[in-house]
Design a protein around this nucleic acid. Structure first.
Lengths: 208, 208
DNA sequence: CGCTAATCTAGAACAAGTTTCAGACTTGAT
DNA sequence: ATCAAGTCTGAAACTTGTTCTAGATTAGCG
């Protein structure tokens, strides 16, 4: 029986893509990011993505079953990039809280450089319904790894994981309020620093 | 003339609405909530809302310039309701953190009873772009009031306001992860309790 | 090579949010 | 009561995400 599986963003390993297919997928993601950088979520129009990446509309939908899937995959792509960058220059703070805050603010500044792209990706993430859960979850896991990296933890306690989840919540939501112009950059910074203090609470031996 | 429109905390904009207009507005919001309760964000179709509320499509758009505006207004409406309900039975916890957590969990359970409605409102909130900022801001302020109420504070310090903002971030984001099936109710509870511990950090004399 | 199933393409078609418009109806002021 | 300005209606049109179809191309296999 021939395999019926479609190419899928999350499963980079399951169905072996041919070289041309891999190239198509890459072209699509590139076009997506490019259009997003220009005009945000609304500027990523499926017909334009298809044309820019020299792929038929039907093919685009075979690779990414919806606009949200496409943008979430774009975010995965960018996150990998960022994780690599952050790894090269680890944060230098004394406490875990400081390092996490520094890392997130660094990520935040990177997003500031491409606010439209950030808009597209974040809107897609929060608008995603259940059909995109696996992909969104993957993004979430990737973010968790980045934060744990900054904390310098290998075996976090359940309490610490909970704190990390709260930090992620804050990070996403603060990003949204900034993107929609309801909070200043300074305020985002304060909120992130505030939530990072939670980390201190979960470190038995680190107190003030 | 005798515009008897007693502003129900929803400070309508400049022009005072006539009675029939107020009635139309109310019919629209009712239809919106009803459709949302049935099938969530997607089930709120502008043509159906118009038909259900016996209003022409163009009129619907005159009252609410977009689907997101409509749903955010629906949320304002529901929030007022909830604030009233919560006020009648204030939370009974010892510390501010406990009371806030209890309040939010109570609100959460209310949303659980109408998960589709919750879905519609929250998706609209996070998907809103700049053109809806004023309305979204209003929702945010209303939420802040509810939390400060639970804390029993009249004159919060900047630090406390920051903690409240972080709690709101967590609340929204946790709601989203629950709605999209990526987190259990138990997990939401833990996250809320975790973030509420931040409150203790901002109370110099609270027991620890 | 030659076959067959899978994939890709171009383009039409459909769905739902949004806009537009001409004409009927309300409202407020004279 | 009458008039002007503003509002509402019904219907069509437009936009963009999504689906569908028929035919061309490609990949893997004997």
């Amino acid at each position: 029986m021939p395999v019926e599986a479609k190419p899928e963003a999350t499963a980079r390993t399951s169905p072996p893509l041919t070289e041309r297919q891999e190239a198509r997928r890459r072209r699509i993601l590139h076009a997506s990011a490019q259009l997003a950088s220009r005009g945000g979520f609304d500027a990523v129009q499926m017909r334009e993505v298809a044309e820019s990446s020299q792929v038929a509309l039907g093919t685009l939908y075979r690779y990414f079953p919806s606009k949200v899937h496409l943008l979430v995959a774009t975010m995965q792509d960018q996150l990998e990039h960022m994780h690599g960058t952050l790894r090269k220059k680890p944060p230098g703070g004394e406490t875990a809280a400081e390092r996490v805050a520094e890392t997130l603010m660094r990520a935040f500044r990177a997003l500031q450089r491409e606010p439209h792209l950030a808009d597209a990706m974040v809107r897609a993430l929060t608008f995603a319904d259940r059909s995109v859960s696996p992909e969104v979850d993957q993004v979430s896991r990737q973010t968790t790894v980045i934060i744990l990296d900054a904390m310098g933890l290998d075996h976090p306690t359940p309490e610490q994981l909970s704190a990390v989840r709260v930090i992620e919540h804050t990070w996403h939501s603060a990003l949204i309020t900034w993107l929609s112009g309801r909070a200043s950059i300074a305020q985002v910074k304060i909120d992130i620093e505030t939530v990072c203090r939670l980390i201190d609470l979960t470190e038995p031996d680190a107190d003030r």
